[in-house]
Nucleic acid binder design. Structure first.
Lengths: 318, 318
DNA sequence: ATGAAAGCGCTAACAC
DNA sequence: GTGTTAGCGCTTTCAT
């Protein structure tokens, strides 16, 4: 591929002039601009991006740190990020950690070596103490609330959301309420779910907490565990609509009526829940992703709260 | 951030020596290597990636072109790509087109401006004639079979797969077979599904073909259309397990028995189908993604076929 | 084994 | 308006 020097030579101008037309600067005579453009077209020339990034000290690329890409929730966040990035002509790298703290730091290092202008952390494995130093090299935005002033946040008040949901169930007359979670206790949202439960109902009966739930299949397993207990829960709060759908399915196979025999509520308002009339808590993850993107490219440390919505559908009794 | 000159100066060596230790070259005395390393650590130095890419003329980054990221099938492909990329220390950019041909070309241009070493096309909007010229600038691998010699392919023989599946249904005694598709007729797999159907059953009754199916919700809609027909199909081939699950759900709500009253088979072996004992055709999309990645970084134009598996579970009669 | 120096392809300050 | 030139931060001959 030709370079800018060659274009300049062929057009009979200096490289600065070529650079100017490339970057749509004013103060270029129409005749020269046209001449340069013609040569550019003829030679099928495109500026080398590494050279531009090197001198501009920015890449118009951002990264998204997530544990897995094949997960509904992270996929929604990513979707939000991508929507905005396409509009604003940014590129996005997907940085999957599998909850490996080492790898996470390696990704953060892409700010330092100027490969990325910013990074969105959708879920982290490191402590903030380990992460914050990297803000020196680029913008870091996270999808949970932290009071670290160096970190931008696009977040949902999960604790309030969980409390609200459990309270709703309680208000509907349920005292035997089970719930499902994804990872074990080290995860942020898991911790908050547990705290919220305790806040509303007090102690958690060990058998009312089902771990490692991600898919509909896990929902079936969870229901299998829960619905054969001597003291069967009368309501379940699932950590996702897929999981809720699995529970629904299993309950129906047992001839249980929803919501009369079992009330059910999921999360994230996924299509899977719509036709089943499952209630759900929509944390608006795509919107969180969009907002996180906006923060990161504005180099903002703002804390932006995204509202959640509890959608009560037929799977909850009146 | 410090640069390589500064490190050289502080370590009392030349920049070449610093570069050598950075790149683990031989022929550096242990004493100097140690001295340089110490300064690097002290200064917390990391080489600028744009400068390295510029001179090396490669980025160790690849792109994945897909229409949407929030879609099970593309997500599986992406998952395969990411698995391998993490192992081999490559970065991957997600390039969502929404089937916009212009945008697709813009993405392909990232090969030309040396931002990406290669691109994986999981689904395309342009003709091969428009795409092939970009192979001059980087490797292009696709997830469908094309005989263009410049393009590497990691693909499943979809036509054979679809014919096999329809034939299986026919062998089980079904002559009233409906099916669902995603996009309209311009999509490659849709076209092949239609051709396969005609090959096995002849003409397609218009009402046995349901379009725009992506999620479980769409499956419910499809079932609603199909199961109230005067001549109800006795089997449905869904273009995904989520869609199949929706159909299952609706059929059950009508008290139809699966498979006695309605045989059902989906695609992609998703968790949603497992607990429902839905039969499925596993096109091994994650494996396709992995293989596509391997081709692209080997700069290979190979054509690699990935086998598909028909998993017969309870949703099909004997 | 080590260093000097020539780029890689581009932008922008400065001079005219 | 336009050109000259000094970098940006690095790798890699080519000497020594």
């Amino acid at each position: 591929m030709a370079n800018i020097d060659e274009i300049a030579k062929l057009a009979g101008v200096s490289v600065s002039t070529v650079s100017r037309v490339l970057n749509h600067h004013p103060y270029v005579s129409e005749s020269k601009r046209a001449a340069v453009q013609r040569v550019i077209d003829e030679m099928d020339y495109t500026p080398n991006r590494s050279a531009v990034d090197l001198i501009r000290k920015e890449t118009r690329s951002i990264g998204v740190i997530l544990p897995f890409n094949n997960n509904q929730a992270f996929d929604q966040l990513l979707h939000g990020v991508l929507s905005r990035s396409v509009e604003l002509d940014y590129s996005v790298m997907v940085l999957p950690t599998r909850y490996d703290a080492e790898k996470e730091l390696k990704y953060l290092n892409m700010l330092k070596n100027k490969r990325l202008d910013g990074i969105i952390i959708t879920s982290r494995s490191n402590t903030w103490d380990a992460i914050v130093p990297y803000t020196k090299y680029g913008t870091i935005v996270t999808c949970e609330l932290t009071d670290r002033p160096e970190i931008g946040c696009a977040y949902v008040d999960r604790y309030a959301s969980y409390v609200d949901t459990f309270q709703l169930l309680k208000d509907k007359g349920h005292s035997l309420v089970a719930f499902t979670i994804a990872r074990g206790e080290e995860s942020n949202s898991t911790q908050l779910t547990i705290k919220a439960y305790q806040q509303v109902f007090g102690d958690i009966p060990e058998e009312y907490l089902v771990r490692d739930c991600y898919s509909m299949d896990d929902g079936l397993r969870a229901a299998q565990e829960l619905l054969h207990l001597k003291v069967r829960p009368t309501a379940v709060y699932a950590n996702g609509d897929e999981v809720a759908a699995g529970i629904y399915q299993y309950a129906r196979s047992l001839q249980l009526r929803i919501p009369e025999d079992l009330a059910l509520i999921g999360q994230e308002n996924q299509p899977v829940g719509m036709g089943l009339h499952l209630s759900t808590v929509d944390h608006q993850l795509a919107k969180v992703g969009e907002k996180a993107f906006d923060l990161v490219i504005k180099n903002s440390r703002g804390k932006v709260e995204i509202p959640y919505h509890i959608l009560v559908r037929q799977s909850i009794n009146d």
